[in-house]
Structures are given as structure tokens and as C-alpha cells.
């Protein structure tokens, strides 16, 4: 009896609170639109400066200084930006050979990257070389399927990270490529590669169902697609569920636009990859509405690519 009285009292107080404070009306029936902007790069490969004017393929393209001015412009339009990278940050210009990735990580920190995953070339100076640069990274290094337990990288990565932007919960996990044949054991040491599909299932269950994330993003360095039987972003998209966006890398694929695929249960999943060397920046905007009473399945969203 006491409990019930107390409950009733609290309810009435709460009602009173609503009527007293007009600020809370926004949480009521009126609908609110929230926009989350995901910006992403992959396989930047130490391309800190633009390609020279003499370059046969990419003359005057790319460059960290231009990338940041574009990112800043977008951040001025919308403060709910998540900036991500899908790996192979290292290797490709003398900046890496001379300074071991210091500039790459410091510049990404300067640009306020939120998270990145690990590519095969990020092992090029060994797990030690990667660990050495970690103090220069203000962003989260996310790796769900590399087990670094017996290496110097232990504790320096996270299996997933949840970002909250304007009340929208965004879960990000990261998948790396099989190391055998790509990274010598002298470099990867005792790093264990775990099956990406199994790990993706664990991660989506955790992020979508336990943590109730509104968006689930996979940062992948698996590669877009292969002619032979090898796990890729396309296969990952088709053989899993509850992933909204796969940001890919490794194959240096210049997708003309993000690709929409059907997942295991017939729902839409986006896959994007923006070539390499910082020539492009990918942008995916997700528009949400809150306080809408009817629950819409994800595919009901209008996708414009």
C-alpha cells in the first residue's frame, strides 16, 4: 500500500514537472529531426601532401591540409559529425619511412578523428611500431577481430566504441584482414586473427540488441570484393544483420557512390569505400526523427546515393 501511494505521488509530481517546465515539451509528441554526418577515409597510406602536379593519375589531388578545411566546413553546417578511418594509415611516402607514423597519427588527432581500425600496413613497423605511435592518437583504435593479448598492443585497442551524438547512439566496431600471407609473423608477433563473420555477429548482438544503438557501423579492412572465396565487405553485408553501414578499405576501391546491398534478412545495408591516398572523403548523412509513435523498419528510410 505504501509503495502504491508513493508511486502515485511520484507520477503526479512528474506530471506537474512537465506542466511547470515548458522546456520539456520538446520531448512530447512533437517530432524532432536529428542529422548525423559520418565522414570517412581509408588507405590514406601516409599521403600527407597532395600528389604532385606531375603525377600521371592523381595530379594535385588529396592532402591533409585540404581535407581538414573540408571537414571543418562540414562541421560548421552540422555539429553531429563522426570522422572515421578504415585502416592502412601507414606506409606509402617517406613520411612513414622517416618518422614511423608520428605525423599520420598527430594529423588525424589534429583533425579530431573519432576512430580508426587497423589495416595490414599498420603492422609495417611491427606491433612495436604501432604501439609506439599510439600515444600520438587521440582517436579510438577499434579492432574487434585481432586478439592482441600476448603483444605490446594489448589494452591499446577497443573491440567497439559507442558514440552519442545529439542523443543518437552510434556503435562502431572494426574488422581486420587475415594476416597470413600479408603480414609476416616477425611483425604481427602473436596477434591472433579471429573470424570476421563470427565476430561481426557478436558485435551486432552487443551493439544493436544489448546496447540498443540507433546506428551500427563496421569499420572494415577486409576489402570490397574478391573473385575468389575470401571474406569481403560485400559478403559481410550479405551474411550478417543489424549493420547499417560498412566503411571499407584495403582494395583501394573507388566506388562511384555508396553501394546499397540486402543483408541476411533482406534489409538495406550501405557499403562505402573511397579509393586511397586521401583523394576522396566519404560522406553519409543519417536523418532521424524522434517521438514518432509508429515504429518504422530500417528499410523504410529513403536512401539517396
Amino acid at each position: 500500500m505504501m509503495e502504491r501511494r508513493s508511486f502515485l505521488k511520484q507520477t503526479s509530481i512528474a506530471t506537474a514537472a512537465f506542466s511547470v517546465l515548458p522546456a520539456f515539451e520538446t520531448f512530447g509528441a512533437s517530432s524532432e529531426t536529428k542529422k548525423i554526418t559520418i565522414l570517412h577515409t581509408n588507405d590514406v597510406h601516409s599521403h600527407i601532401e597532395p600528389f604532385p602536379a606531375s603525377d600521371a593519375s592523381y595530379a594535385n589531388q588529396g592532402g591533409a591540409a585540404r581535407r581538414l578545411s573540408l571537414i571543418n566546413r562540414i562541421r560548421q553546417e552540422n555539429s553531429n559529425v563522426l570522422l572515421l578511418d578504415a585502416g592502412d594509415i601507414f606506409q606509402g611516402t617517406p613520411y612513414f619511412n622517416f618518422y614511423g607514423g608520428e605525423l599520420e597519427f598527430k594529423l588525424m588527432s589534429m583533425m579530431s578523428y573519432d576512430a580508426a581500425t587497423i589495416g595490414n600496413h599498420d603492422f609495417d613497423n611491427g606491433v612495436e611500431g604501432l604501439a609506439k605511435q599510439m600515444p600520438n592518437a587521440s582517436f579510438k583504435m577499434i579492432s574487434s577481430n585481432y586478439d592482441f593479448s600476448n603483444t605490446i598492443m594489448e589494452g591499446l585497442t577497443k573491440p567497439y566504441e559507442i558514440f552519442i551524438k545529439d542523443g543518437i547512439k552510434i556503435g562502431v566496431f572494426g574488422l581486420g584482414i587475415q594476416l597470413k600471407g600479408l603480414v609476416t609473423e616477425a611483425l604481427s608477433k602473436e596477434t591472433q586473427y579471429l573470424d570476421p563473420l563470427e565476430i561481426a555477429q557478436d558485435m551486432t548482438r552487443k551493439l544493436k540488441h544489448e546496447e540498443k544503438c540507433d546506428l551500427v557501423i563496421c569499420l572494415s579492412h577486409l576489402g570490397y570484393e574478391y573473385r575468389f572465396d575470401k571474406i569481403s565487405d560485400v559478403k559481410l553485408a550479405q551474411q550478417t544483420q543489424d549493420i547499417d553501414l560498412i566503411i571499407g578499405g584495403h582494395t583501394h576501391t573507388f566506388l562511384p557512390k555508396p553501394v546499397v546491398l540486402k543483408n541476411k534478412i533482406g534489409r538495406d545495408v550501405l557499403v562505402n569505400q573511397v579509393g586511397w591516398a586521401g583523394i576522396n572523403l566519404g560522406r553519409i548523412d543519417f536523418e532521424f526523427s524522434t517521438a514518432s509513435k509508429e515504429s518504422k523498419p530500417v528499410d523504410a528510410a529513403v536512401i539517396t546515393v
Binding site: 585540404r66 578545411s69 573540408l70 583523394i279 566519404g282 560522406r283 548523412d285 529513403v302
Partner: peptide
């Protein structure tokens, strides 16, 4: 429930028409 209404994706080129930070 938060409802996802629309998704829009584009590739933005980093060209020399952008200012350098």
C-alpha cells in the same frame, strides 16, 4: 523509438580548389 528517415551518401573529392588548413 528513434526512427531513421533518410540516408544520403556522397563522395567528396579533395581537390586543389579547397583551401589548405
Amino acid at each position: 523509438q528513434v526512427t531513421l528517415n533518410a540516408i544520403e551518401g556522397t563522395q567528396l573529392a579533395i581537390t586543389d580548389s579547397l583551401p589548405q588548413d
